[in-house]
Design a binder for these strands. Structure first.
Length: 574
DNA sequence: GCCGTTTTCGGCCCGACTGTTTTCAGTCG
């Protein structure tokens, strides 16, 4: 993993540096390769050992050799010499409004190579004196610099979606818009959203844009035109609004939903089929005749593709699948019959009384809800001990007696010890309906040891679900370094489900690993990991995540009826 | 530098907005 990140970093830096040099096409080639390597789930050094680097899409002979050199020596001569030639800190290019051309200019003219030097030159007023720069450029670069310095984190979907929905509703309520929808990463339901894209139609564009720019939640107008305007809200969220004509609403939705990689692929396909595709429509190249635009589905259909759900539009094979009519029938929120990871107030960090959990589950129409309180490890976490398990089970049994249409499952989230054993005895585990096991300590074991540890958990006959398998916490720590090949195949053999933990700070497994799991025939289990009442809403986020991982209903435990779930849990392997 | 259900060579997505330009380059998505 670490090595892979290093490769990705170097390839991206090469792309940056080549862009500054003004080289054509190569930057994109390096960036594409970096992206492909970044999305690998196989062990990169194993691929190298197998001589299969060139099998990675967008990696050819040249880049394969470079990757090999990085893996062998942890550095790359070509990269080092480029850095010598252009000693610009890569962070400098993360500054908004400062692209490769301007970065080159301020380096050549003023010797700026770092954020600190950039700040000094902004203060001294030298930047604005350069040809092609002016007071506005200076101000825009200054703003961009501030954001990089604050290393503006991406926003979590769970925060953005409600805020964006409210804003969209306010626009709609103005009566100035005929139609408004989310596009961009928000529509694709990415778990981290850069900015909010809203797309719609309006009779009077000027008036509609004026209204948008004058919202009281608007802190700054970044740009304003009759088709596109951008604001930054007081909460620091960037919102782009685009107004298009009714006859191109569909193609605009397609275009602005992205992802960029998906769009590039789609346009390449359009060109090869004799079309031209832009946000206004799909046009026949020869006649210039518009063949689609009003409806998004038609854009895809005219290109001989099935309509592709936004969650899949990441250039992960969805276009080929759409052409072959092999797109997955994605799981829907209505397919979900229950939540399989919740904490009651029996967990020391849990705050939800059992009766509240019951009410919430009933409100959502669940058939079941797993009450999976923490187990207690050597007194650190105040959770269930072996004795506590007996009480837990009888408490759940008692609650179930009064229930109709909903059943609580007596469960536990056991802690995985350093050696892969659990902190409850087998005797206790077998009394429970469902056993989750999660790593909550010793996060930094080396790959082999961590893989061994997790395989031990998967092999444990009492464990039904491996909770938050990679242990990542967004903005806090990355995921474990694991041998996913082994892990997926063992999970399939032992019928151990891997969790899709829907908690926004975890989102673990992440989409690309879910997709791999699905391909490997592994069962997955959505859990909200609720500790407070409002966390139960995370289930929807879990479904989005599952969809982004190409999950069909049959891939998930949560779509099983109570009867089928019970028999899956009780089967010897499960 | 990669890639090929028209290609192993000759292509490589496309348009809006901004600022500084007096006709367009740079940046962004």
């Amino acid at each position: 993993m670490q090595q892979r990140k290093r490769v990705v970093e170097i390839l991206n830096e090469i792309a940056d540096l080549l862009e500054i040099k003004g080289v054509d096409y190569k930057p994109r080639a390096y960036r594409r390769a970096a992206r492909e390597v970044d999305s690998l789930t196989e062990d990169l050094s194993k691929i190298y050992k197998d001589g299969a680097l060139e099998d990675i899409p967008s990696v050819g002979k040249n880049i394969a050799e470079k990757i090999a050199e990085i893996l062998d020596t942890n550095r790359l001569e070509y990269h080092e010499s480029l850095k010598q030639e252009i000693p610009i800190d890569p962070l400098l290019l993360r500054v908004r409004n400062l692209g490769p051309k301007k970065a080159r200019k301020i380096w050549e003219e003023l010797g700026v190579t770092s954020l600190e030097e950039l700040e000094k030159k902004l203060e001294s007023g030298e930047i604005r004196k350069l040809d092609g720069f002016g007071p506005k450029s200076e101000e825009n670069i200054r703003k961009g610099l501030e954001i990089v310095k604050k290393s503006q984190g991406k926003n979590q979907l769970s925060d953005v979606l409600p805020a964006a929905t409210e804003l969209k509703n306010r626009l709609m309520d103005s009566g100035l818009f005929d139609d408004l929808s989310f596009a961009g990463s928000l529509r694709r339901r990415k778990y981290e959203v850069g900015d909010v894209d809203i797309l719609g139609t309006a009779e009077d564009r000027e008036e509609a844009m004026d209204f948008f720019a004058s919202l009281d939640t608007c802190d700054e107008v970044l740009s304003k035109g009759s088709t596109k305007s951008s604001i930054r809200t007081r909460e620091g969220l960037r919102v782009d609004l685009r107004i298009v004509g009714v006859d191109s609403l569909g193609s605009a939705m397609q275009y602005f939903t992205g992802s960029q990689e998906h769009n590039v692929r789609l346009r390449e396909l359009a060109i090869s089929e004799g079309y031209k595709l832009n946000e206004y429509g799909l046009y026949e190249e020869s006649s210039g005749e518009k063949v689609a635009g009003e409806e998004e589905e038609m854009v895809y259909r005219e290109l001989d593709l099935s309509w592709i759900p936004p969650e899949l539009r990441e250039d992960r094979g969805e276009i080929k699948a759409a052409r072959d009519d092999q797109l997955p029938q994605l799981v829907e929120i209505d397919d979900i019959k229950g939540d399989l990871h919740c904490h009651s107030d029996e967990s020391s960090d849990g705050q939800i009384p059992l009766e509240v959990l019951v009410k919430q589950a009933q409100n959502r129409g669940y058939s079941y809800l797993a009450v999976t309180d923490h187990a207690e490890t050597s007194g650190i976490v105040g959770g269930l001990t072996d004795k506590g398990v007996d009480e837990h089970v009888s408490r759940i049994e008692k609650a179930n007696r009064d229930l109709d249409g909903l059943k609580l499952l007596a469960g536990v989230e056991a802690n995985v010890q350093k050696d892969g054993s659990l902190d409850l005895t087998d005797n206790s585990l077998q009394k429970l309906d469902i056993v989750l096991a999660g790593v909550h300590s010793h996060f930094d074991l080396p790959r082999e040891a961590m893989t061994r540890r997790i395989l031990e958990v998967i092999d444990n006959e009492y464990v039904d679900v491996l909770a938050h398998p990679t242990g990542r916490k967004l903005g806090e720590r990355g995921g474990f370094d694991l041998d996913w090949e082994k892990l997926f195949s063992r999970a399939r053999e032992t019928s151990t489900a891997l969790e899709i933990n829907a908690s926004p700070s975890r989102t673990d497994l992440e989409d690309k690993l879910i997709k791999r799991g699905v391909e490997e025939g592994v069962k997955l289990s959505i859990g909200t990991d609720s500790h407070r009442v409002n966390h139960l809403d995370f289930l929807e986020l879990g479904v989005y995540l599952a969809r982004r991982g190409w999950c069909e209903p049959g891939d998930l435990l949560n779509t099983l009826s109570l009867k089928d779930l019970r028999s899956w849990l009780q089967s010897p392997a499960g």
